[in-house]
Simulated scan of single mutants.
Amino acid sequence: MARPLRRSSPITLILALVLFLGFIIFILSPSNPVPSIPKSKIASSSSTRTSPNSPPPVVHYYLNNLTTSSDPVGNRERVLVLTPVARFYDEYWQNLLKLSYPRDLIELGFIVPKTREGNTALAKLEDAVRRVQTGSKKHRFLGVTIIRQDFDTPVPQNEKERHALSAQKERREAMSRARNSLLYTTLGTETAWVLWLDADIIETPHTLIQDLASHDKAVIVPNCYQRYTDKGKEKTRPYDFNSWHDSETALAMARKMGSDEIILEGYHEMATYRSLMAYEMTEGGDPHLETELDGVGGTALLVKAEVHRDGAMFPPFPFYNLIETEGFAKMARRLGHQPYGLPNYLVYHYNE
């Protein structure tokens, strides 16, 4: 006869339930639980944020306190020297180092194209900058920025090809983009003046910045010439024809143009009959003689930083049928900043 089943004891049931619950908890628990952060660490982090040595969360800049005066050295006004670099000319660099403006008030900015020639220029530029910035502290510049173009250079960079009329629109559109990229990357809150100085300007007065700033003009440009040899004799000739006074002929030409067309100066195929500052130089004339301009060149161009902050840039598109530096002059005038030129104050371009 079979034995009757015995009832389980309460203790056995409790143990079975505990084991079952333990198994369920084990299955559902994460394999790598995140440890809690000790309170001491939290307190330490909080005290660091409120430390008196930490920078404030918001920095205020009062741009109205910036001065751009006729005495930039005396007023300790910072100058940003900007140069698009397709080729590196040692004469440019040596001339830059001879400028007498205090280096602790000068920041440098360069933009270099992504080409084989640009790679060579970049290597030479970086070497030149390194020698200065790792040398004596009193000879170092306040800062140096070098950037690379994020777009292709459209035409070869030898002098004949880059100055051909057919290449001008595409070339100057690219140059405008390069200038704007460089400007908006480097323009700081303490910048008072911007000096645009082309990489092939190899000779200027050592007091270039002080001389131009002494006129206290929003936009001012010297006359750019070129030294050359003719039959064994040293001579000079005008180089930059983008600084001009407008003419009725050019204005009438613009009225007949489409919105996407541009007027280019210095080409016989496009006679504008403008009055060019290049031909207004008087031998032995007053270097501080001023003249109002409608267009400016960019070989050496001093601009009050407020002009750029107001929105004047180098249009990479036809702006009143003008482009690049000439378009910049038009834009500056539309914003109420009259450009000026110095016909008898000369800087010199490299002669290829």
Rank of each mutant, 00 (worst) to 15 (best):
M1H: 07
M1V: 07
P4F: 11
T12E: 15
I14S: 13
L17F: 14
L17E: 09
L19C: 12
F20G: 06
G22Q: 11
K39Y: 08
P52S: 13
L66K: 09
R76V: 01
E77Y: 07
V79N: 05
V81T: 10
A86N: 14
A86F: 15
W93E: 07
L96F: 08
R103N: 12
I106T: 05
I111W: 08
V112F: 14
V112I: 15
V112K: 12
G118R: 01
R131Q: 12
Q133T: 11
T134C: 09
G135K: 02
S136G: 09
T145H: 12
T145A: 12
Q149M: 09
D150R: 10
P156Q: 11
P156S: 14
K160F: 08
R162Q: 09
H163T: 11
A164I: 07
A164F: 11
L165M: 13
Q168W: 04
K169V: 12
M175G: 00
N180H: 12
Y184D: 06
Y184H: 13
L187N: 04
A192D: 08
L197F: 02
D200F: 07
I201F: 01
I202K: 01
V221T: 12
C224W: 06
Y225W: 08
Q226A: 01
G232W: 06
G232D: 04
K233F: 06
Y239E: 01
W244P: 00
E248K: 13
E248H: 10
T249Y: 14
A252Q: 09
E265S: 09
G266D: 08
Y267D: 00
H268Y: 07
T272A: 01
Y273L: 08
A278F: 04
E280V: 00
V296E: 00
A300P: 00
A305C: 03
H308L: 15
F314K: 00
P315S: 05
P316G: 08
P318M: 06
R334S: 15
R334G: 08
